[in-house]
Amino acid sequence: MSFRTAHFTVATRFALIEHGRNRFAMVLVALFVPVWTTLAYLAMPDDPARMRLRATGETLAPHGNELTEISGALNAVTLITGFMMFAATFSGSGFDRRLALAGYPRVPLVLAKVTALALVSAVVAGYATAVTCLAWTPRQPLLLAAALFCAGLTYGALGVGFGSLLRREVEGMFAIVMTSIIDLALQNPVTSSGADAPVVRYLPSYGAMQASTAAGFSSSPVPGHLAVQLAWFAAAALVAVAGFRRSTRSSLSSGAPAPPPRQEGGTVGLPAPRRSAASSPTPPPTPTTPPTVSDTEAD
């Protein structure tokens, strides 16, 4: 395996291990997704909620509880992926910097994080779709999964951005939670009379909300709105990459050599101990007597 491939595979493997060992996130995935979506489905009235779906131009009257369940699934997926990526970025930024200064190329590090985010988003989105299908049957389950996946990607990238820019953990968690609440609450016609307002088009999960609603209650494909969501992901990812570049840059000029590799198979052993005055044991830490003059210069 070439070092270029090794850089990517090793970083991806460890990024996935790190996410897998985030026990709180695993509990959230296992419990929060079904609890939140099921409660939304059971607790909300099933009265028809008349709405106009911009994505298809159709006027729909879905059950209010099913519409809220979709909103709940989006909320759960975005919070989980945002939290996981924020936690990994916040706690790992110093480690990433150390790796980069040690010579680890930053492109594979970034690609590994994107790959891990994509896998996490795919798993959580698939799980949320499956839970949804247990309660009722969306018209286009695959589109629902795709919409949840794209929303998860977007909030994961936002989580990386918050993790790079914010200084305290609580700030990042608050930022993710509030962004998701404002984003989704404003778009839900059951809870918001402003769901038709033009401003909602500029919210981070607008594309996913439109696509997932179409998935639930329409048979029309909406690739344009998935593309809108992917554009949000791209924009958030750009901010995240800029933050990552900033936090991992080296101030040493490009002329300064990165640690060159030792040749494959050219292992060097640790120098053997040598008996010398300098290597003899010294008494426990106490102020020492002035040593003899060194033959080295001290500039």
Binding site: F3, V10, Y104, R262
Partner: peptide, 10 residues
């Protein structure tokens, strides 16, 4: 293992 890859060690 991570730093072995960073330093490109055998």
């Amino acid at each position: 293992s991570f730093f072995r890859t960073a330093y490109r060690l055998a």
